[in-house]
Amino acid sequence: MLELQGINVSYGDLQALWDMAITVAEGEIVALIGSNGAGKSTLLKTIAGGLKPKAGTVTFDGVRLDMLSSHEIVRAGVALVPEGRRLFPEMTVLENLEMGAFVERARKLKKESLGRMFELFPILENRLKQSAGTLSGGEQQMLAIARALMSRPRLIMLDEMSLGLAPIAVKSIYDTLIRIRRATKITILVVEQNVRYALKVADRGYIIENGRVVGHGSATVLTNSDDVKRAYLAVG
């Protein structure tokens, strides 16, 4: 469904990603793991259109995403929950959700999508009129995910979801993700520093270091790999 080939991305003169190649099949949960600053967020941003690759292609169901701008990519069915959530701080919970449903296709289904979001994240329904900036960390993360889901994407990407969240909140969100996948067959791409959780939830994973893909495999293989254990599981 999603295929990256030969992706090279630079911030100005500073190259961040080197020849990355990733595939994600429909309905999968794929995790991108690696240490801080390895380039995982940069990769997600590139797929979402926030950055343009110097070379390489990003294809989604045959459509070249690297030639599109971010809003067109959302229309194509890819949504990003950005690092740090990036909610609209002075807009209410409801308004943030509405912004998620901005694209034509999603706007028509807004009411239904809202209903679904309230089922998945009941707490949001209680906070509709509140400013997004006043929510707790966990609530903000839920709102960010719900907001992205409002665009009815076929692929949702989550960037460092667990940062700054209490373990209970992280578990709850991951459980919800699994529920979502079961219900809607949505494809999920997660970037996670919390490797343990990422591999528990994912089907497959890619290891990214210094802007390159240095390993990949099924979640079970990776969890049992000595290298991964040493590098990430002892610490995280």
Partner: peptide, 20 residues
């Protein structure tokens, strides 16, 4: 509302499908 969204965070607005 999309104008307000863009003024608060234009990058995130783009990720919502708003044509910034």
């Amino acid at each position: 509302k999309s104008i307000r969204a863009v003024s608060q965070d234009f990058e995130a607005a783009g990720y919502m499908g708003i044509n910034v």
